[in-house]
Computed example of a mutant assay.
Amino acid sequence: MPAASKTPDRRHLMGRGPYPGLFAQPLLVEEFFPVCAPALAQTLRTPAGLPLSAIGKGPGFLDSSMALQAAIDGRGVTLGRTALVADDLAAGRLVEPFALRLHYDLKSGFVCPRGHETRSPVRELLDWLSMEAAAVSAGGRRGEGAGGHHGTTRQ
């Protein structure tokens, strides 16, 4: 953020656009789909095999990371989102038990004032974000797109 301004010079957002006066680079198209532990997936044949009578009777979670951890632990099936489950899918902790995906029409993207995208620090950040998003889209783990620097802080 520029020192003389309270307005950030770059942002990550979810939206449809357009964004007048801003440079906008879509990064990731999200999808939602069922995920569960590999052992549980072996017992499920079709979505119809999920007992509807159990819906609402199990634990409820206010945080998606808790629901994903319960799925990893084999406690059930939950709805995964592309960016949130990429690492767990790549590592084999979660699998997609059915070929069902729901396309989310909002895109994850990067915006900044037009012209700022060519500035070195902004360009470096955008290049890194683009590599990370490409790795997630390709089913890889985050950090692989950035030369293996998973977990590092970029400034």
Rank of each mutant, 00 (worst) to 15 (best):
A3L: 12
A4E: 11
S5F: 06
K6V: 14
D9F: 15
D9N: 13
R10N: 08
R11D: 06
R11V: 10
L13W: 04
R16V: 12
P18L: 02
Y19H: 06
Y19Q: 01
V29S: 08
V29W: 01
E31G: 02
F32H: 14
F33L: 10
P34I: 01
A37W: 01
A37R: 04
A37G: 07
A37P: 00
P38T: 09
A39L: 14
A39G: 08
A41G: 05
L44C: 12
L44H: 07
T46P: 02
P47W: 04
P47F: 03
G49T: 11
P51Y: 06
S53A: 13
A54C: 15
K57V: 03
K57N: 05
P59E: 10
D63W: 09
S65A: 13
M66R: 11
A70C: 06
A70I: 02
A70S: 10
A71T: 04
I72L: 09
I72M: 11
G74D: 08
G76R: 07
G76C: 08
V77M: 06
G80S: 03
R81C: 09
R81L: 11
T82E: 02
A83G: 10
L84D: 09
V85W: 01
A86E: 00
D88W: 07
D88A: 15
D88F: 08
L94R: 02
V95A: 05
V95S: 02
P97Y: 01
P97N: 05
A99S: 15
L100G: 01
R101F: 05
L102P: 06
H103M: 12
D105Q: 14
L106D: 04
L106M: 07
K107M: 12
S108Y: 11
S108A: 15
S108P: 00
P113T: 08
R114A: 13
E117M: 12
E117W: 04
T118P: 07
T118F: 09
T118L: 12
S120V: 15
P121D: 14
P121V: 13
V122I: 14
R123D: 10
L126I: 04
W128E: 08
L129S: 00
S130Y: 04
E132V: 03
E132H: 06
A135S: 15
V136T: 03
S137V: 04
S137C: 11
A138Q: 14
G139H: 13
G140Y: 00
R141W: 03
R141Q: 12
R142C: 12
G143A: 05
E144W: 10
E144R: 09
A146D: 13
G147T: 10
G148A: 04
H149S: 13
H150D: 15
G151N: 07
T152E: 14
T152N: 11
T153F: 07
R154H: 13
Q155A: 11
